[in-house]
Design a binder for these strands. Structure first.
Lengths: 211, 211
DNA sequence: TAGATTGTTAATCGATTAACAATC
DNA sequence: TAGATTGTTAATCGATTAACAATC
């Protein structure tokens, strides 16, 4: 497994490869060809081979790719074997849903704490993870060595919270707000989830079909 | 406002244009140049002009783009002035969060009903929208003329639910599951939200920075 | 061996950026 | 008018697809 600089488009396809190959693995399938993968992924065999080759060829001519090996390779490439400590900020609807729902362990993260301003829920737990008051956030992050934060807060509070997180040594963000973190912290690693943007895109596609 | 066939990449940028321009509008700014917009959007002036021109030039040479006009134009292009009737399936964590959280009216949708299998919550309301039992879903969609569905259910239930929705005349989906709707319904309009894929991408980027 | 399928190079396609004449 | 900024064409860049020799 090497790397060079793999393009963003390839990276975004990797989790899907991983999902489908994991499925095959669970079904006991032990080999898969680029053509078969292409069908599942709704792309071309050419792209599959091109993609997988970025990481060093572990296919065999005339045979295809060994499923268990492929699964492990992609897992390593994505870095899912490591564990990044994370905090979740905002135990509102979205935050609670994320905390209760996501299988963090299998995606390279461990959720160490949840933070909120609502005094009434401080001390509660979501799936064994305690809710702390936001005042202790900076020290918590420093003490625990937190590297990632999941932002499930209103847009207005985002700049202040990110500042505190940044001071606490957190540099990676899963951002559900519309606050543009990279504008203020160019080096931060940010993955934005703009749910409303997606709904608007859906709206556009629906309009298009009608015409 | 015309169209031709605008590429997916342009469409995905439109909601962001819309957000930023709405902000400018609220601040009372009445004109903006491609250069200024490019800075906010973190892209080039060239791309901004190229993008906006897909919809017929409403900028003025030597002046820039009139903000209120631009806002209205993009709103129309996205189709946010129309209202699509929608249902939400699955009043679990994610579903509840979405139902309670999203500003559907301003994004071209109206949420007409929520559906779940849990008998204990049938009849409850989330933000004035009633929760119905899933058994009545098909007839509800037909009767109300529902055109979109937001799927916040486990993956296993997805194929069955989509079948019912399809029979009820629903053809557009905001899909939080990993079920590949287009595999079974090639004509369906689908916007996928794969939260776990995004987390994995974040994981990858964090790994990359460490090396 | 013959058939299958990869790895990899070359060709195509599309999207982004640069440039500049048109014009407000 | 002079300066600014668009609309639009051309150049560049990157990503996808096709092709085929290498080889299991």
């Amino acid at each position: 497994m090497n790397k060079e600089n793999i393009s963003k488009s390839v990276i975004k396809r990797l989790p899907r490869y991983y999902r489908f190959i994991s499925e095959l693995d669970e079904q006991g399938v032990d080999r898969v060809s680029s053509g078969q993968l292409a069908e599942i992924m709704r792309t071309t065999a050419s792209q599959v081979r091109q993609d997988l080759n970025h990481f060093g060829g572990f296919g065999h001519q005339g045979y295809g790719y060994p499923v268990p090996k492929l699964k492990e390779e992609i897992k390593n490439i994505l870095g899912l074997n490591k564990t990044h400590k994370a905090v979740l900020i905002g135990a509102g609807h979205i935050g609670t849903a994320i905390a209760a729902h996501m299988d963090f362990e299998n995606m390279g993260f461990s959720l160490e704490g949840i933070f909120d301003t609502n005094k009434r829920i401080i001390g509660d737990k979501i799936r064994k993870v305690e809710i702390y008051e936001i005042e202790v956030l900076r020290d918590f992050c420093k003490a625990k060595g937190i590297s990632a934060a999941f932002l499930c807060i209103p847009r207005e509070s985002a700049p202040g919270v990110v500042k505190v997180l940044n001071e606490g040594g957190v540099n990676s963000f899963w951002n559900f707000t519309h606050y543009d973190i990279n504008a203020d912290y160019p080096d931060a690693i940010v993955e934005n989830v703009h749910l409303s943007d997606m709904l608007m895109t859906l709206c556009y596609s629906m309009k298009e079909l009608e015409d």
